[in-house]
Amino acid sequence: MEFDLLGSLSPRGSEAPPAGPDTLQCSRKGCRADAAWRIRWNNPRIHTPERRKTWLACADHREDLEQFLGARGFWKDTVPLAAADPAGEQQE
């Protein structure tokens, strides 16, 4: 078995994608629960008004993340994960 020059743990020529979660996970540090909510926000000092950044939240951490962003004036809205497309826009 050959390895690349950087000492990769995957064999050279392997076409398998890098390992990662199969589902979207909560953005709270240390949480690995499946996300159920898309929390959309922006920092008005560095983002244009229409830009939305996204954090994902499980049911247990949704309120904490909203409060954290709200206290800074960053929180815009929260939508169920199933009701948003991959770009974060709510579907009609």
Rank of each mutant, 00 (worst) to 15 (best):
D34W: 03
C31V: 04
W37H: 05
H47N: 01
P49G: 02
D85I: 14
D77L: 13
D85L: 12
R52T: 00
A36E: 11
S8R: 09
E2S: 12
C58D: 09
P21N: 14
W37E: 10
E89G: 07
T54W: 13
E66Q: 15
W37R: 03
R40N: 09
S27R: 00
R12V: 10
E66V: 15
L5I: 12
A35L: 07
W75I: 04
G70N: 10
Q67G: 07
L24A: 12
L56H: 14
E92D: 13
L69N: 00
A82W: 14
P44V: 03
E15K: 14
Q90D: 06
P80D: 03
R32S: 11
T78E: 06
R32F: 11
E2T: 12
C31E: 00
W75S: 02
E50K: 13
E66K: 15
A19S: 10
L5Y: 14
K29E: 10
P18G: 03
A82H: 14
H47Q: 00
L69A: 00
A84L: 06
Q91P: 09
V79F: 15
P17R: 01
W37Q: 06
A36I: 04
F74A: 01
T48Q: 15
E2R: 06
G88N: 04
V79D: 08
L24E: 14
L9F: 05
R32C: 13
D85A: 11
A84S: 11
A59W: 04
L5S: 15
G88T: 13
D77H: 05
R45C: 10
D22N: 09
C58K: 04
P17I: 01
L69D: 02
D64H: 06
F74N: 07
L65D: 09
L24C: 10
P21G: 11
S10M: 07
C26I: 11
R40K: 08
Q91R: 12
R51G: 07
R72T: 00
R62S: 13
E50A: 12
P17E: 01
D34T: 12
Q67K: 12
D4I: 01
P17Q: 12
C58Y: 01
Q91E: 11
D34S: 08
A33I: 05
F74V: 02
D85Y: 07
S14Q: 04
H61N: 03
L69K: 00
E63T: 10
S14P: 02
C58E: 09
R40C: 05
P49E: 00
A19L: 07
A16S: 08
R12L: 11
I39D: 08
A83L: 11
S8V: 09
Q91V: 15
A82K: 04
F68W: 08
R28T: 13
E2G: 12
E2A: 11
I46M: 05
F74D: 02
L24R: 10
E15L: 14
P86Q: 07
P80H: 01
L69R: 01
A87M: 13
E15P: 03
G30P: 05
A87Q: 15
E2C: 13
R72V: 00
R28F: 08
E92P: 06
H47T: 01
S10L: 08
H47L: 02
A33L: 12
L81D: 02
R51Y: 05
M1Y: 10
M1L: 12
R51H: 10
E92S: 07
P86S: 06
